[in-house]
């Protein structure tokens, strides 16, 4: 499987990366190499290997349903670029 410029543009758009046209060629090649590297896995016989969703053999880690203090409003808004009325202020969202 090879990566096309169109794929790279699409992935950049999904990731909200404003990719300049002059960088397109370079990224297409780099991404292609990475995908090609991973493709080596397809040569392996994995018939007896179970699909893995997690690399560490740990499971069933739970938290009990007990409330712990949250941040205060000013603590949470400390990371906001802009704030208003106790909320994070962001560019207008139009549905």
């Amino acid at each position: 499987m090879s990566i096309s410029k169109k794929d790279v543009k699409y992935v950049a758009a999904l990731a909200r990366i404003d990719l300049p046209e002059e960088d397109l060629e370079g990224f297409t090649q780099t991404l292609g190499k990475i995908v090609h590297y991973v493709e080596q896995l397809q040569k392996l016989n994995l018939d007896n290997v179970k699909p893995t969703s997690h690399a560490v053999p740990v499971g069933n880690v739970f938290r009990s349903d007990a409330v712990k203090p949250s941040l205060t409003n000013s603590q949470s808004l400390a990371i906001a670029v802009e704030a208003k009325d106790g909320c994070f202020k962001v560019p207008l969202v139009i549905e």
Partner: peptide, 10 residues
């Protein structure tokens, strides 16, 4: 926002 210029997130 009531000014219509931004959105507020909670």
């Amino acid at each position: 926002d009531n000014t219509g210029s931004c959105s507020l997130v909670d």
